[in-house]
Amino acid sequence: MSADLLQIGDLTFTSRLLLGTGKFSDSATMLRALAASGAQIVTVALRRFNPAQAADDLFGPLSQLPGVTLMPNTSGARDAAEAIRAARIARELCGSRLIKVEIHPNPQHLLPDAIETLEAARVLAAEGFLVMPYMPADPVLAKRLEDVGVASVMPLGAPIGSGQGLGASEMLRIIIENSRVPVIVDAGLRAPSEAAGALELGCAAVLVNSAVAAAERPVEMAAAFAQAVQAGRAAYRAGLMPRRSAASATSPLTNFLNAQT
């Protein structure tokens, strides 16, 4: 059997768990959770340099980790122009072509703005970025984003930070069925079983942050998600047993095939 790799543009990864680095109590815990997760794509956010916190520099320790590719996000951007500028700055900062386009005009719900996201994706894909858009679980938007050249689509499973799991699974199923780029569930997951469910459904990967960072013991939870993602992927590849559907007995529908008239 050929190696089962996650392909993002021209990059390949063995891990199908992407980890965010926000909301951890301290960066030492975050780094240990990251190691436990086995994640190879790690999201970071842009922030203004603060001389008082120069020692908290994330880039140094993250860049020490072997096999980790940074995926800066554009969080804080409220429209396409801001996200485009954030992406260019992030590329200057770390040289990574991966960019998580994340545009949420409303700071309460942090829900993605589909229209601005599409516009930012169009511009950034043309500039050579591997665009990873955080988006509502909308099958038509997924195709529109694919048309402008994104490297993956990242629909939310449920509202970000809500821990509601795969509330959008029926929409996700349609997106997966029609997509030519990897579908990565981003946001909304709480339990490893939900991550496994996303992979069983055919998602290429999942991105989690809160579910790990806000767990009682983040490092152990990161390891649990790693196992769940592997199990879900293996189950998807193995092919789930079909559900039985009860056939209702009515008069035969195929008698006409044998009728002699």
Binding site: R173, E177, M241, P242, R243, R244, S245
Partner: peptide
Amino acid sequence: EAALAAAH
């Protein structure tokens, strides 16, 4: 029989 019962 498995295909006939498959969800997809």
